[in-house]
Amino acid sequence: MSAKKNKTAVQAVPKKPLGERIKKDIKKNYLLYIMLIPGLLVLVLFKFGPVGAMVIAFQKFSAFKGISGSPWVGLDQFRRIVKDPYMLKLVKNTVILAVLSVVVVFPVPIIFSLFLNEVRNRRIRSTVQSASFLPYFISSAVMVSILYTLVSPSYGLVNKIIEFFGGKSIFFMAEPGWFRPLYIILQIWQTFGYSTVIYIAAMMAIDTEQYEAADMDGANRWQKMWYITLPSISSSVIVMLIISIGNIFSVDLDRILLMYNSSVYETADVIQSYVYRIAFDSAGFPDYSYGTAVNMLKSVIAFILVIIANKLAAKYSETRLF
């Protein structure tokens, strides 16, 4: 009896053609689709529009003629990139900054979190964490301005300290050799509190019974940190590492543009800052097509890296990035 009923129920809903089903769906849920309109406008105009405009990498784009009127040149812009001797320096600078931010910046919040986790006094703990997290919310313009005054050769604190110890005052912002260290120091200062939030949250989730069992076995503090705390946050660490490797080409352009000047281009000029200068900071006509071609190569490589990173993150932990 019941089987028969089921059968008639299935027969009662024959599949209608797709167009009709969509029409019915929209009619029934039209308010939801109205809600989607602003989001779709943003998606089409501001997210897909620019991706579409990337076709100018295959043109000799002129702002007067527009995308439709500009001549197509195939892969000419990309051939120019290969022949451009400056490109090698840009790629080198970009990769060095990226590698430094993984190798030098990445371990800092892990070590910091491990020791912060040992603090028993709650007030000290939360105050220290708040203080370390604050710089993350301060703009690059303010951070670089502060750096600028701190290292000022005329009155800055850093040079005062150097002079106190008998050294000679250094004009940090004009020395190519100092650009990378200063960039990395700013990056640590600005971002380590952010990662600390994630690691500390992972440490809070560790079962206290593990520590109690270790106490019974007579484990000391270092053994507990090394054998319980650190392994327990390893999946967070792996995900964060994969993210930072996936983002290896996303330098902080604001910070670079605010920090650099022509005397430190040798170490400070990266792909993104070069593209910015081509388009928005050059005398004469900006070479939009060439800048777009350079950036497109970077975007494609970055895209592949992020996709691989996402796959790896899904493999090594339950987390997916998107």
């Binding site: 989607l36 779709l40 620019p50 993104q272 593209v275 388009a279």
Partner: peptide, 21 residues
Amino acid sequence: IMGLFTLTWVFEAGLIPTYII
């Protein structure tokens, strides 16, 4: 729709095409 948002998020168009639009 969510997939399209994510795609344009991961694949950055860059400053110049955005400026043109």
